[in-house]
């Protein structure tokens, strides 16, 4: 064997523009360009838009969807789907608030209890989906009902006000880095994404996430325990939703058992970011830029005084545009 052959070979043949446009990295670059255009337009349209404090407002506003989206990115790359995350968010916020007000387990106990609820819901989802082959859509909708009902029942539908300053700091404090005051929720979101980016890119688990999404049967035949991976991913999804719920409760200053139905916003952000519904393809970077893009759109439109009703329309159109482009570029 000669030296030259045993070198790990790099991408042969130089840069290929069409190939790049079709790749997952291409999607991220495209979204970044779209984001920059949108930022430029709003900066011209509103004097309040291009401003550090407004940037931080956007960061805080997207953090909840961002945290949940990061976990959902992993699940959807592996071909899964979780529609119970909105219900888990509510449940986690209420559980945290109840632990804080009715026990002396403190902030740590509240977070652990909330995360445990998320993990449990995810485990149930994962068991039924992996072991019995129940369709994820059906299973997680069913769990959404179960969790919502239990949350309303256990809380007697009453919102629980949280006064513990340490807990509130999770959602309401700022980290000062130089002249920047970064809202804590934004930091949690960025940390979450950084960790999951690392997992996806560098670890065996991350490789299996892509592999299972690519072809689960091939993974099984290669000796990978696909069921375990699937269950772990649904548990992670539940944990992610619970963490998002904790931060949401801290931002709100209350655990509110009703109202939130974030699952579709989360899933649409993940798809906008380039994750294929069929699984196997996607990057955390894409999800980050997609969440930013939606957040900037909403914020900019609010500053321009556009009704939230039309903001919904815009959000829908952006998603349609993104998936249409995704279809078209395959013909390149």
């Amino acid at each position: 064997m000669t030296q030259s052959v045993t070198q790990p070979d790099r991408n042969a043949g130089g840069f290929n523009l069409f190939g790049f446009a079709r790749s997952q990295e291409g999607v991220v670059v495209f979204l970044l360009v779209a984001l920059m255009i949108v930022v430029a337009v709003f900066s011209a349209a509103s004097p309040y838009f291009f401003d550090v404090r407004n940037g931080m407002n956007i960061g805080r506003a997207i953090s909840i969807i961002g945290i949940a989206s990061a976990f959902t990115t992993l699940l959807m790359i592996a071909g899964g789907l979780d529609l119970s995350i909105g219900a888990v968010m509510n449940a986690a916020g209420v559980v945290a608030a109840m632990v804080l007000t009715q026990t002396n387990l403190g902030v740590g106990g509240a977070i652990v209890a909330a995360v445990a609820v998320g993990a449990l819901v995810g485990w149930v989802n994962g068991m039924f989906i992996a072991k019995l082959g129940i369709n994820p859509l059906i299973m997680t909708i069913a769990m959404q009902f179960v969790v919502r009902g239990l949350t309303l029942g256990f809380s007697a539908s009453a919102s629980k006000v949280i006064v513990d300053p340490t807990f509130l700091a999770i959602g309401q404090s700022y980290f000062h880095i130089g002249p920047l005051a970064i809202p804590a929720p934004l930091l949690w979101m960025l940390l979450t994404m950084l960790v999951l980016w690392f997992v996806l890119r560098f670890t065996l688990f991350g490789k299996y996430v892509y592999a299972v999404g690519g072809k689960a049967s091939a993974c099984r035949r290669a000796g990978i325990n696909v069921n375990v991976i699937t269950i772990q991913l649904y548990m992670l999804s539940g944990i992610g939703a619970a963490l998002a719920g904790v931060v949401l409760a801290a931002i709100q200053g209350a655990g509110i058992p009703y109202g939130a139905g974030s699952e579709l916003s989360v899933i649409s952000a993940v798809i906008l970011g380039g994750v294929s519904l069929a699984g196997g393809i996607g990057l955390i970077e894409g999800t980050l830029v997609a969440v930013l893009l939606v957040g900037v759109l909403k914020n900019g439109m609010t500053l321009m005084g556009i009704s939230s009703v039309f903001q919904m329309v815009a959000e829908g159109l952006v998603l349609v545009g993104a998936v249409t482009l995704d279809r078209l570029k395959r013909r390149l």
């Binding site: 509103s46 309040y48 401003d51 404090r53 407004n54 407002n57 805080r60 506003a61 909840i64 969807i65 909105g86 509510n90 949401l248 931002i251 709100q252 209350a254 509110i256 009703y258 109202g259 939130a260 139905g261 974030s262 579709l264 916003s265 989360v266 909403k298 914020n299 609010t302 500053l303 009704s307 939230s308 903001q311 919904m312």
Partner: peptide, 24 residues
């Protein structure tokens, strides 16, 4: 001020909308 009752429920929507209004 449009309360933007969205995916995160009425309270979070009101917080986000009001924060933006205060910034403006």
């Amino acid at each position: 001020v449009d309360m933007r009752t969205g995916e995160l429920g009425p309270v979070a929507g009101a917080i986000a909308a009001t924060t933006d209004w205060l910034t403006a």
